[in-house]
Design a protein around this nucleic acid. Sequence first.
DNA 1: GTCTATAAGCTGATAGAC
DNA 2: GTCTATCAGCTTATAGAC
Lengths: 211, 211
Amino acid sequence: MSTEARNTEQKIIASARMVFHQKGLKGARMQDIAKEAGINQALLHYYFRTKDKLFHQVFEEDLFRFMSPLATIMSKTGIDLETRISQIVEYYVEGLTESPNLPLFIVQELTSNPDRLVSIMQKIKQDNLSGNRQVMQNFIYQIEEGIREGKYKKIDPVQFIVSLIGMCVYPFIARPLLKEVFQMDEDQLHQLLIQRKEEVTNYAFSILLKP
Amino acid sequence: MSTEARNTEQKIIASARMVFHQKGLKGARMQDIAKEAGINQALLHYYFRTKDKLFHQVFEEDLFRFMSPLATIMSKTGIDLETRISQIVEYYVEGLTESPNLPLFIVQELTSNPDRLVSIMQKIKQDNLSGNRQVMQNFIYQIEEGIREGKYKKIDPVQFIVSLIGMCVYPFIARPLLKEVFQMDEDQLHQLLIQRKEEVTNYAFSILLKP
DNA sequence: GTCTATAAGCTGATAGAC
DNA sequence: GTCTATCAGCTTATAGAC
């Protein structure tokens, strides 16, 4: 494979990602991707024989990017829960600022084809050297331990985790709604997201810690 | 308009809603909608001349259903903040159980075409006899007042509201992800959603109320 | 109002020259 | 590897009979 080929290939993937994120699998046009990459449709098919193959490559990488850090943070050892929570919030709120459409894209495509998830999950699990279930159960166990010690309130660990991720991810998913409801422009929304990191971390501690 | 016509029309809208919720605007096929309604494509076009018109009718109603109760609850007078919060959580967690795909559908289509929002928002505002901004500012003011009185923690009202809605809506949006990550079947997920009402209400109070 | 048959347009994919 | 030209299939939309 020549250098030129790798360049073109990478350019295509980057363009495809942009278009897929904006329009989804069904809404994206091969013509748009080609144009964005500065090539024509025939060359696009030369590199990736079908739209599905191209999509799969983009999506797999995206899902991995979205899920893997979470699994990594959760499976780290020798780290207290407060730090773990801060890192999760930090990853999502900071990391997603660069790819604000990522969460909606993933959830959208996963809903219309849930089968995709299974195979990709395998890789994430392998990367973290343990089954995903174990990763979660480790994190859950740490919460339960804190509750037993009387340090945390008596909450449901799963509900807590869902809430934590929800608080981080929702503003990215519901961006157009927020802009309209709170009458914000792009700049104000950006400000909200920056400040959100600290705010959500505090909320999580409020939920968890006994007064 | 004959009785038959109203029946067929309603049947079409119900079928269209089902298909649009599952596949989105781009993914939905007029053929699927017709089949679901037990008619053929020509009759579909007889009632709604284009796919876009049919979609718009469904979407407008859905967005109204999704947003209006929130605006109504928020603009109610003579009601304390705790009750207001309980009602919001109740509406979303209970109400959305019947249309679990509604939030993702709305956010998805709104992202790919944000212009839709503006015109529909007008109607919602009119229905609640006040500008949406006023509704929100009323709610925000109530929070600020509690903070001044020393009853609530010093939080950002907008961040709080976004978090509250996020905690309610996120599990519906991320359903396939939750099922895989927590290894749940449809029944367990349903249980989680039922219990969620009380849990999220408590979380909101934990965030808000001073110890 | 409801149907069958068909037109018109778009989109992914390929053939073949360079 | 990259291009132009074109095909084949699908999907929306319409014509016209009943």
